[in-house]
Design a protein around this nucleic acid. Structure first.
Lengths: 137, 137
DNA sequence: TTAAATAGGACTATTTTAAACCTATTACCC
DNA sequence: GGGTAATAGGTTTAAAATAGTCCTATTTAA
């Protein structure tokens, strides 16, 4: 419970990599995967998700690769999480047709939703910029 | 990512059930499972976890069942989560021998740990008592 | 002594996550 | 133009986690 996925971890590492070692150039998935010891194919999926969300930008073809699509100040951890994992749902209730047996009488949905928004707010208050500053120290 | 398990949901429902409809008596798993439409066997596992944590108390034998093991003011959502899911680990790093390829040079562990503690604090600040008060409104 | 309950180990099924595979497309460079 | 190194993305497979079932033992009221 309450654990982030590896894909998210890969994505977060990739973003900080681009923000520190990818300045003024594009970086290949191969370079990042080698450097960080990740699966190249799998990291590639994460990069594609980040690209679709505008967090990364890509250049195709030989000499291609990725760079950040926004300034580190404008990318939050929440952005990365949503890009890779989709909108968060702490509980299943109410997602599409998924309502449990006691949906109508359920007492917790309200609380769980508030909780989810608070967690989301935590992820939202850290940008890559502030994350990197903390690391420097 | 970041979704609670059904076992936790079952457990939370069971605890609020005991706190509202289980006053001055013991409640069987069968009653709760029927009332809430859950699997009796599975809810039973959750109750056993809650019992081991002291959140619920049990009476064995015919006429047996469960009641709360503490006052609703003394049970937090975090207590229930830990009883059922064990200690939370937002990331896998450092749990037992599980260190990823870049453990020694990893930049995020510190941040993720802080994040985890903040989430934990959110779960810790809601007791069953306050949860029920919110529901009443 | 029977029956209704919890206790808990072992197993199975389902779902999710992680990873690999494969083909297409893009664009640099010779 | 052809070869090659890269992203793009769909499909499939493998592994792990979750959810649920099954079975047996123990407890205790009647």
């Amino acid at each position: 419970m309450l654990q982030v996925s590896r894909k998210f971890e890969y994505g977060l590492h990739a973003v900080t990599y681009l923000a520190t070692k990818g300045l003024g150039r594009v970086v290949t998935v191969k370079e990042m995967a080698d450097e960080m010891g990740f699966s190249q194919e799998f990291l590639s999926k994460a990069m594609q998700s980040l690209k679709r969300a505008g967090i990364a930008a890509s250049v195709q073809g030989v000499k291609g690769g990725y760079r950040l699509g926004k300034a580190p100040e404008e990318i939050t951890v929440a952005d990365i999480a949503i890009a890779i994992e989709g909108e968060p749902h702490l509980v299943r209730c109410g997602v599409k047709a998924d309502r449990c047996e006691i949906f109508s009488s359920c007492h917790h949905r309200g609380y769980m939703n508030i909780l989810q928004h608070k967690i989301q707010a935590l992820l939202d208050e850290t940008t890559i910029h502030t994350l990197l500053k903390e690391i420097e120290r």
